[in-house]
Amino acid sequence: MSNADALPTGGAPQAVPAWRAQLPTLIRVYGIILTLMLLLTVVTIGNPAFMSQQNVFNMASQWAPAGIMAVGMTFVILTGGFDLSVASAYSLCAVVAAYVGQAHAPPIAFAAAIAVGLLFGLANGILVAVVRINPFITTVGSGFIINGVALVMTQNAAFLVDDEAFGMLGAGRWHGIPYSGMLLVSFLVIFGLVLARTVYGEAVYAVGGNYEASRLSGIRVRAVVASTYVLLGGCVGLAGSIAASQLSSAQANLDPGIIFDVLTIVVVGGTSLSGGSGAMWRTAVGLAIIATISNGFVLLDISPYYQSIIKGSIIVAALALDTGLSRLVRAR
């Protein structure tokens, strides 16, 4: 009945066509897909080899660790949290996998890595949700600790695994399809469904959207927040296993920059850093965008210096567009 109830679109006073009134909302929701399609088109025209089956499979395998961690990170960010310790934890889990894999069967090695990931995830979760330390500070601190543990374990040397079976997880293929790529896709799908269709997913959105209202509605807010860090820890464990398996070795500083890939994937997809809004399909699209930029630019023979500039611009532009349009939609 009152005007405040009207959506930006519904019953707009002037004769503005509905689709045009809705344009900012549409771009905000689906603009990211448009960006991806544009990128794909440009890169494919520049070098048709980009779309070849082999290249796509290679990309899936190459991006599996970052992508799987982005799945877990999506949950953490949706609750309004943050985890900067994943780079260190990723290396530590790879080191654990390689260390155990030197003496034991690969499944035991990978299980050990995942267990270590879960453990540190639980520690982060308890510190953030129960002790209530700021997640940024907590995970910077725990990142140092985890990195230190890995350094002590390895004495900063690489652990090599001389076992062909150990490489199956990361490098093995079934009819050309990499196992790691299959794992990545199934994680995106399964946890996408968890987020969109389960009681737990609903609670994650609620807690991230309004912590106090969720608490007063009887949701176990602390358990929900803590669990997302545990989930991310498990993802990190698997990602570390895949990396160790791909390289047949691991060291304490495997890829410190991977944290930025993970965060960028989630945020470029449009999941809000303030929590409560976002989706797993967004993370999938974000992953595709980042992978296309990185891989496509190599195929297009663009100098790495320019790659960096273009990559940064696309990320900032995507966020600026999202923020600007949100404000526009809200302002009505």
Binding site: V199, E202, A206, G209, N210, S214, G218, G276, S277
Partner: peptide, 18 residues
């Protein structure tokens, strides 16, 4: 304290009994 404003009306109605 009452609602998750970023969510739709329906999930808000279910909030206390997910």
């Amino acid at each position: 304290q009452g609602l998750v404003l970023s969510r739709a009306a329906l999930p808000n109605l279910m909030l206390a009994d997910l």
